[in-house]
Design a protein around this nucleic acid. Sequence first.
DNA 1: GATAAAAATGTAATCGATTTCATTTCGAAT
DNA 2: ATTCGAAATGAAATCGATTACATTTTTATC
Lengths: 329, 329
Amino acid sequence: MANIQQVAKHAGVSVATVSRVLTGKNKVTAKTKQKVEEAIQYLNYEPSMLGRNLRNSESRIVLILIPTISNPFYFEIIKGIENMALSQNYSILLCETDSKPEKEEIYFDLVRKKMADGIISMDPAVNVETLKELSENYPIIQCSEYGGGIGIPYVTIDSEEASYRAVKHLIQIGHRKIALMNSDEKFLYARERRMGYERALQENGIPLNKDYIFYTQELGFEPGQLTMKKILQLEDRPTAVFAVSDLLAIGALKEINAAGLHVPGDVAVVGFDKIDFSNMTNPALTTVAQPMYKMGTVAARMLIEKIQGKTVDSVVLGHELVIRESTTG
Amino acid sequence: MANIQQVAKHAGVSVATVSRVLTGKNKVTAKTKQKVEEAIQYLNYEPSMLGRNLRNSESRIVLILIPTISNPFYFEIIKGIENMALSQNYSILLCETDSKPEKEEIYFDLVRKKMADGIISMDPAVNVETLKELSENYPIIQCSEYGGGIGIPYVTIDSEEASYRAVKHLIQIGHRKIALMNSDEKFLYARERRMGYERALQENGIPLNKDYIFYTQELGFEPGQLTMKKILQLEDRPTAVFAVSDLLAIGALKEINAAGLHVPGDVAVVGFDKIDFSNMTNPALTTVAQPMYKMGTVAARMLIEKIQGKTVDSVVLGHELVIRESTTG
DNA sequence: GATAAAAATGTAATCGATTTCATTTCGAAT
DNA sequence: ATTCGAAATGAAATCGATTACATTTTTATC
């Protein structure tokens, strides 16, 4: 309840001196410092961020834009962001857009109104126009998903290569009829992953079968189930499925089981992301691991540097294929 | 970049008038209102929350304390909180304590420093002493988990009753050897759920077998696996397991499968929470549904009312047993 | 058209910190 | 003891909004 004025009065010094003790970056005598600290103690004083933030024209809050909190893919990234942010005295505002422009707009307003110092966008469905416009005045970093060529720094992995390796793994263990369960190609990562898929087939002399490529609107469990149902109805049934997200793959697993078939005996399945749950299914899922925690810390560091006025470069991180029971049961 | 002064100057009015147009709660002529709005448009003005918040002595941010973001149990609750908060122009700061006092303290400091207007605590491991002390000066609501008798309003379900019903269901379908996979009894909900378990046994004339009660340190997948391993090694093996969280139950499922046994044929499993993933496993999990979204909205409304100075009462919400394949395969 | 009441607008204080610039205090050198 | 320079401290402006109170303008009434 006490403010800096009262502390100053109680300590018999000016507010400037109290502030100097608080921030610690100007010199004060040991003696006055002690007087001030005693007053702070006595009055149970806590400096208000409201005053400080106004004066410093900053909020020390960064905004994280995610499509939905329900996809565990974002967990580790968020943890990475949070820990890095915390170490630099920033807090994070987690914003779920549900891929709706209205909600997105609410959060964009938060940075326009100085409630947040910058944005880490992980929403593939983000309005790129608005984001670009915003990025001219406010620090923004794209994480994981990114719109290319709009001049906003990003941190991501090489989706094409990751996809290529996943499909190559399936080919190496003997599969030639491989379905791709992709997401809408309006997303860059979806286009890249299809390209990796095609390159792997091509390099191994497997002709591309358009009937084996499926698109889903969302990366969830139900779309995975539904799509798998369609795949199982194909006349020339694939012996393997590569899904571009673990949730899709888990939906596929469930559907395959429901159809009385066996994974990987009848159909092998590969996912993408290595979310925690990919290890809890039966069988455990072969999947492409993204360095999610690292992506988070890197994105946070990039954003904070941008807030500080530095220029930052985009970063492409490595990935890893994790082979488990769903391909080698 | 423009501030209220410049808008006032450009519109040829005083800052007070501009502010009146902004807040909309005082009267201004249609004509001056238009002048001001034109100036706002022209200058691309966005009112700064920093100034407003200082003047109003509020941050319009609420803090959510969770032990870990990795447990999907919190998803729906968070969504509920967020939507209610958003509708009242509040934003949410999601704070992961990892059940560590140091991190908890960082976040408590945020409210002491006026960075947040209040707290919704969902962390069972929270330091009750500190929380109580804090609650004397700042609005706090406990959600889902709560320390009883410390005078902080809470929203929760009747854990004893929920547990009773889950075990009763197992008894009704013929089980008499039922293990309880509980969490540490330092948590109130753990004690309550054990009581419900015991009551169900007692009412059905089944003697309590202490060897069938297990405690885990955390509510995750691995503890579920480990504990299930122990259960399977019992000489007189139970035919059913009631786990106090879905993650524990999913760990149990995996372990039972790994042992070459069948669910529910050899061992039936019941979980708790009805997280999304409880429906994705094979078989799908019977579980106790908590009204999570509702808990979130109620908790948020309670907190906002408390922030506004009203007194609020604790709330106990209903629950529902969702019977699926893991008990009636 | 004069007057009073009501409505609209303006002036200036305020929220609580930081920081520039001015002033005082202190210590060292002569 | 005096003087000078450096170090410590203080006074006051500042960040950008809101609002109590004062003042002006409008409207209604006779």
